[in-house]
Amino acid sequence: MYATGVCPYCVRAEALLKRKGIEAIDKIRIDLDPSRRDEMMQLTGLRTVPQIFIGDYHVGGCDDLYALDREGRLDPLLQGEA
């Protein structure tokens, strides 16, 4: 997950993932290493955080993550079934 230290959406996304049992979240802090923002933008075409990846799948942002959960598609994705 590409994130910054002060982003409330990053905190919400991380909280949902932790509620789902995901403890090891690889956070890439673009506020600490601006070159990583360029990397994020090349991968996603977007400049806002969070940008969440589950494996190689680009989920998108916090709202996208919560939408996947509401649709019942997040758990299978986290279990490697999607």
Rank of each mutant, 00 (worst) to 15 (best):
M1Q: 11
A3F: 01
A3D: 00
T4C: 00
T4Q: 00
G5A: 09
G5I: 04
V6D: 15
V6L: 07
V6Q: 10
C7A: 08
Y9T: 04
Y9W: 15
C10P: 03
C10D: 03
C10G: 13
C10I: 12
V11W: 04
V11E: 08
V11L: 07
V11K: 13
R12I: 00
A13Y: 09
E14I: 09
E14F: 02
E14M: 07
K18C: 11
K18M: 14
K18Y: 08
K20I: 10
K20V: 09
G21N: 08
E23M: 13
A24M: 06
A24C: 12
I25R: 01
I25D: 03
I25Q: 02
D26L: 13
K27Y: 04
I28V: 15
I28C: 13
I28E: 14
I30W: 12
D31I: 03
D31W: 05
L32F: 01
L32E: 15
D33M: 10
P34V: 11
P34M: 05
S35P: 01
S35K: 11
R37G: 07
R37K: 15
R37D: 01
E39K: 05
E39I: 06
M40C: 07
M40A: 06
Q42N: 13
L43Q: 07
T44Y: 01
T44N: 00
G45V: 08
G45N: 03
L46Y: 05
L46V: 09
T48W: 00
T48R: 01
V49C: 03
P50W: 03
P50N: 04
P50C: 07
Q51E: 05
I52A: 02
I52M: 04
F53T: 06
F53V: 04
F53K: 10
F53I: 01
F53P: 06
F53E: 10
F53A: 06
D56K: 15
D56I: 08
Y57W: 06
Y57K: 08
H58S: 01
H58M: 02
V59D: 10
G60W: 02
G60A: 02
G60C: 00
G61M: 09
G61L: 05
G61E: 02
C62D: 10
C62F: 06
D63N: 14
D64L: 06
D64G: 04
Y66M: 15
A67L: 11
A67K: 12
L68F: 04
D69P: 02
R70P: 03
G72Q: 01
G72R: 00
L74Q: 05
L74F: 09
L77W: 00
L78E: 04
L78C: 06
Q79V: 01
G80F: 10
G80K: 13
G80W: 12
E81S: 06
E81F: 11
A82D: 07
A82G: 14
A82E: 04
